[in-house]
Design a protein around this nucleic acid. Structure first.
Length: 565
RNA sequence: CGGGGUAUAGCUCAGUCUGGUAGAGCGUUGCGUUUGGGACGCAAAAGUCGGGGGUUCGAAUCCCUCUGCCCCGACCA
C-alpha cells in the first residue's frame, strides 16, 4: 500500500474522557471513530487489523473442523419466545419492529437461530457431530457502554455451536475448541490464561474463559503459582481453613459502638483486626430472610451465594425496612447472636473457625465482643461464600492463589440440551428413535481482541502490534524524495521487492517531514521500519529499526528479507 | 435505573459566575522559506454557541424544557 493512496487519519488530540490506553490509541491512530454511544466506524486502518484477527480465527476454526456459515443479524421474536429469552434476556436485547409491526431483535447471540437451523437440517445421528461457526456483528444494548471498542454495544464476534448425540462427543469437540482457542491466542501474540468459569444459570458441565491479562481488565481471575489451576473469581473455591476453631476464652460482652457501622470503623474503634470480626449480611431468601456470615476482611461472592438452596439465583440484599422489621435494628449492627430462629445462619468456612469474635449486637449502636459459635450463635450450615484473596491456598492443593485482572476474549461452554429441548431439536439414533441433541457453544470477541492486544502491547509512542495483527508488517519511509530522485526510486524498488515476496509493506510516500512520518508509523504500530534517504543510499545499506527497539541498525536487503521470513 | 457532569469552528478546548456584535491551539486551503524526530512566516476559509420555549432594549451567558454524550454505582452468556 502506498500511503499517498490510503486514508491514514492519525490525530494528536483525543477527548479527555477516553480513559483507557487502547481507546485513546485507537482514536489517535485513526482506527475507529465513534458514531454514537457504543457504536464505532472502523476506518480502513482499523479494518485491516480486524481482518487480521478474523483471518487467524478462521484458519484455526477450519483447522479444528468447524464449518463456516452466516446467520442473519436480525432475528424474529417467535424464536426467542420458544426459548423464553424474549423476556429473560432483559434490556440488553434490542427489540425492533418492521413496517407490518412484526417484532424482531438485533441478535445478541445466535443459539436460537442455529438450533432452529439444526432442527431443520439435521435428521440423523450420522450427521453428527457437527460444529458450525460464523463471524458476525452482534448487538447488546449494554447498560453502560465504555472503553471504546472494549465494551461497545455493536461488536464483531466469532460464535460457533456444536451438535452431538452424546456427552462424550461434546467433550471431544469441547477439547478441540479449547485447543483451537489456545492456538488462536498464541498466534495472535497475546499473553492469556484459560480459566475455569462458572456455568451460571444455564448449567452445563464445563466452561472456560480465555482471559488476556491486563491491569485494565474488567474481570478478576485467580491463578495458582504452583500448578496450572486458574479460575475466574466467581468460580474459584475458597478452601476450608486447616485450623480448628480455637477454644473459647472470652465472655460474651455487649459494647457501645454508637456510630460505627462498617467493619473498618468497628475494628478501629474496638482496636481489633477486621479478621477478628464477623460481618453479617441479610438477604432476601426464597422463604424469608437469610443471614450470611463472613470474616470481616472477606467479600461475599454473589455467584456462590446464589447457589445456596435458601437463596434465589441472583440474590439481593434485604431492604433497611425488612431488616428493621425482622431484627429491630439497622444494617451495620446485625450479628448472628440472638437472631430470630426463623432466619437461617449460613456461615463462611473462614468465619466458622473464628473464636472470641466481634459481631453486630442486633441493636442500634451496639456490638458484641467475645462472641463464639455454638455457645452464643447457632450455625445452620457452613459453606464457601467468599471471594478468594491473594495468598489463599489453591483448590487443587498445589501452590498459592494470586489475583490478576483479565479481559475476556473467548469463552467455551458445554451447553447441554437446554436449547435443543426448548426448540425440540432431535435426530434419530441408530435405533431409529428421536434423541435430543447435546450442544456446545464457543465465542470469541473479535473486535475486543484488537483493544485487548493494545492494552497489552503499547508504549509512549503508540501501539506495538504482534506480527499477526499488524496492518502492515513493514513501513518504508522515504526522506526527501523530491530532492533526490534516486531516493524515491530506491524506496519504490524496495517496496516492490517486498511486495513480490508477499511481505505486506506500506510505502510512506506522503512527503512528510521525517518526524511526522516516524511518529505516525510508531503510533500505528508497524513492527518493522526501513528508512530510505540520501545518507543511506551513499552507505549502500538499509537503515532498519524494529518497533520494539530504540536504535536503528544498518542491514543489507538480503538480511532484511531473511528477517521478515 | 440511581447519582454527578457536559454540549461553543473539522478536532481538542477557553469564554457562561458578573448579559453588550464569537476566541485559542491543532487541523484545512494558498504562497514562500524549509527538510533525520510532529518546522517557520504571511494570507485565508470555517461556528443557527445541541433543539425548543421564556426573561430582557439585548442571551453562548439567566430561567424552563427536551435530546445527545461522558463519568461513578448497580448490572453483565
Amino acid at each position: 500500500m502506498r500511503l499517498s493512496q490510503f486514508h491514514l487519519a492519525t490525530v494528536k488530540e483525543v477527548p479527555a474522557d477516553a480513559e483507557i490506553t487502547s481507546h485513546r490509541l485507537m482514536l489517535r491512530a485513526g482506527m475507529i471513530r465513534k458514531l454514537a454511544s457504543g457504536l464505532y466506524t472502523w476506518s480502513p486502518l482499523g479494518l485491516r487489523v480486524l481482518r487480521k484477527v478474523e483471518h487467524v480465527v478462521r484458519e484455526e476454526m477450519n483447522r479444528a473442523g468447524a464449518i463456516e456459515m452466516l446467520m442473519p443479524s436480525i432475528q424474529p421474536k417467535e424464536l426467542w419466545e420458544e426459548t423464553g429469552r424474549w423476556q429473560k434476556f432483559g434490556g440488553q436485547l434490542l427489540k425492533i419492529k418492521d413496517r407490518k409491526q412484526q417484532e424482531f431483535c438485533y441478535g445478541p447471540t445466535h443459539e436460537e437461530v442455529i438450533t432452529d437451523f439444526a432442527r431443520n437440517e439435521l435428521k440423523s445421528y450420522k450427521q453428527l457431530p457437527v460444529n458450525f461457526y460464523q463471524i458476525q456483528t452482534k448487538f447488546r444494548d449494554e447498560i453502560r457502554p465504555r472503553f471504546g471498542i472494549m465494551r461497545a454495544r455493536e461488536f464483531l464476534m466469532k460464535d460457533s455451536y456444536s451438535f452431538h448425540l452424546t456427552q462424550e462427543s461434546l467433550a471431544e469437540t469441547y477439547a478441540a475448541m479449547y485447543q483451537a482457542y489456545t492456538r488462536i491466542f498464541t498466534r495472535l501474540g497475546l499473553t492469556f490464561r484459560a480459566v475455569q468459569a462458572d456455568t451460571g444459570a444455564i448449567g452445563g458441565n464445563a466452561s472456560h474463559e480465555f482471559q488476556v491479562l491486563a491491569d485494565s481488565g474488567e474481570d478478576a481471575i485467580a491463578f495458582s503459582d504452583g500448578s496450572d489451576y486458574a479460575a475466574n473469581l466467581e468460580k474459584a473455591e475458597a478452601l476450608a481453613p486447616t485450623i480448628e476453631r480455637p477454644a473459647l476464652t472470652a465472655a460474651l460482652q455487649r459494647v457501645d459502638t454508637p456510630t460505627q457501622k462498617t467493619i473498618d470503623d468497628v475494628a478501629g474503634y474496638l482496636k481489633v483486626s477486621p479478621q477478628q470480626c464477623v460481618k453479617t449480611l441479610l438477604l432476601r431468601g426464597t422463604e424469608g430472610l437469610v443471614a450470611l456470615c463472613l470474616r470481616g476482611d472477606h467479600e461475599i461472592n454473589q455467584v456462590k451465594a446464589g447457589k445456596l438452596a435458601e437463596l434465589p439465583d441472583e440474590p439481593v440484599l434485604a431492604s433497611e425496612e425488612e431488616i428493621l422489621a425482622a431484627t429491630g435494628t439497622r444494617p451495620g449492627f446485625i450479628g448472628p447472636v440472638g437472631l430470630p430462629d426463623s432466619i437461617p445462619v449460613i456461615v463462611d468456612r473462614d468465619a466458622a473457625v473464628l473464636g472470641d469474635f466481634v459481631c453486630g449486637g442486633n441493636a442500634d449502636g451496639s456490638h458484641y465482643t467475645g462472641a463464639n459459635w455454638l455457645r452464643d450463635a447457632q450455625i445452620t450450615r457452613i459453606a464457601d461464600l467468599r471471594n478468594v484473596v491473594d495468598g489463599d491456598l489453591s483448590p487443587d492443593g498445589h501452590g498459592v492463589l494470586h489475583i490478576a485482572r483479565g479481559i475476556e476474549v473467548g469463552h467455551v461452554f458445554q451447553l447441554g440440551q437446554k436449547y435443543a429441548e426448548a426448540l425440540n431439536a432431535t435426530v434419530v439414533d441408530d435405533q431409529g428413535k428421536p434423541q435430543l441433541m447435546t450442544m456446545g457453544c464457543y465465542g470469541i470477541g473479535v473486535s475486543r481482541i484488537v483493544a485487548a492486544a493494545i492494552e497489552q502491547r503499547h508504549d509512549d509512542a503508540g501501539i506495538l502490534w504482534p506480527e499477526a495483527m499488524a496492518p502492515w508488517r513493514i513501513a518504508v519511509c522515504v526522506i526527501n524524495p523530491k530532492n533526490t530522485p534516486e531516493v524515491a526510486e530506491a524506496a519504490e524498488a524496495l517496496y516492490q521487492a517486498l511486495s513480490q515476496r508477499g511481505i505486506e509493506a506500506v510505502l510512506d510516500d506522503r512527503g512528510l517531514r521525517p518526524g511526522g512520518m516516524f511518529a505516525d508509523m510508531e503510533l500505528i504500530g508497524i513492527p518493522h521500519r526501513v528508512v530510505i534517504s540520501e545518507r543511506g543510499l551513499a552507505a549502500g545499506t538499509l537503515e532498519y529499526r524494529a518497533r520494539n527497539e530504540t536504535e536503528s541498525r544498518a542491514i543489507g536487503q538480503a538480511e532484511l528479507f531473511a528477517l521478515l521470513g
